[in-house]
């Protein structure tokens, strides 16, 4: 394993995300509830950002706003200086539940993401096959989602999000529903894939170890309303060792902040 230049991949120059003064209000039983308040965030191209927070702090809402599923907010979201409007193929997302379509095979599910690309069928086939390889699912091309284990289905969802070559990959607690062992394995996979693909990644999680192990930065969020409490750079090259003293130190600090000894 060779160390990769840190923190930025020199070859990546698109995928910068700028968020200014972002606020979001829901109406709950007729009363407005503020879920996000004055979020400012600058994410550099190719950066892996972990967003850490307790459930209900608005971190998933933040991702929904960035991916464009919800367009009712105040403030600005810019991708490479262009405002974001609605969903787009330059932003891929992996949800906590895999959301593969149960009536399509693995191959068809991934190919669906390429539906509106103008390219020869052979090239689409090749891209799909490459990404199935990338997530280590070769041999399962013709399996239906119900035949895959939870971890495999989540890998497939990652492949579907990556096959469009998005500038930004959004991960909404992608490993949250998996068992602890599968989780650790997929964290390593995610790191490998990210090093290979070199896109900007924003991952929402409530697992401190996961946030520290994968992130170039860890953004800690507070709830009610959702605000950024801390922006913690992790100066450690990838791939990382889980038991590094630096990560352990950060972990103790974050635990203290979030749980309060």
């Amino acid at each position: 394993m060779n160390a990769i230049a840190h923190p930025l991949h020199p070859s990546v120059d698109t995928g910068a995300l700028t968020i200014c003064g972002l606020s979001k209000t829901y109406a709950l039983k007729g009363r407005p509830v503020k879920v996000l308040k004055d979020i400012d965030l600058n994410i550099r191209p190719g950066e892996f950002v972990s967003i850490l927070g307790a459930s209900g702090c608005g971190k998933s809402t933040l991702l929904r706003l960035i991916v464009g599923l919800d367009q009712d907010y105040q403030g600005q979201i810019l991708l490479d200086q262009q405002p974001v409007r609605g969903p787009g193929l330059e932003r891929g997302i992996v949800f906590q539940d895999h959301r593969l379509f149960p009536w399509m095979t693995l191959q068809q599910n991934i190919a669906l993401a390429l539906k509106n690309h103008v390219m020869p069928a052979a090239q689409k086939d090749r891209l799909v096959a490459e990404h199935i390889d990338l997530v280590g699912l070769r041999g399962f091309e013709l399996a239906y989602p119900h035949q895959l284990s939870g971890g495999m289905a989540q890998r497939a969802a990652i492949a579907r999000a990556l096959v469009n070559k998005p500038k930004v990959l959004l991960l909404d607690e992608p490993l949250g529903a998996l068992d602890a062992l599968t989780r650790v394995r997929l964290q390593q996979e995610l790191q490998r894939i990210w090093i290979q693909e070199r896109c900007t990644v924003i991952m929402v999680t409530h697992d401190i170890d996961e946030a520290l192990y994968l992130g170039d930065r860890v953004i800690v969020m507070d709830a009610n309303p959702g605000t950024i409490r801390e922006d913690l750079p992790i100066d450690l090259p990838h791939p990382r060792e889980r038991d590094s003293a630096l990560l352990q130190g950060y972990k103790q600090r974050l635990l203290g902040e979030l749980v309060g000894h």
């Binding site: 991916v67 599923l69 891929g92 959301r99 539906k115």
Partner: peptide, 13 residues
């Protein structure tokens, strides 16, 4: 609803 959202994210017409 989740299926519909996934379809939206994939930019299907």
């Amino acid at each position: 609803g989740q299926h519909r959202e996934a379809a939206q994210v994939l930019m299907l017409s």
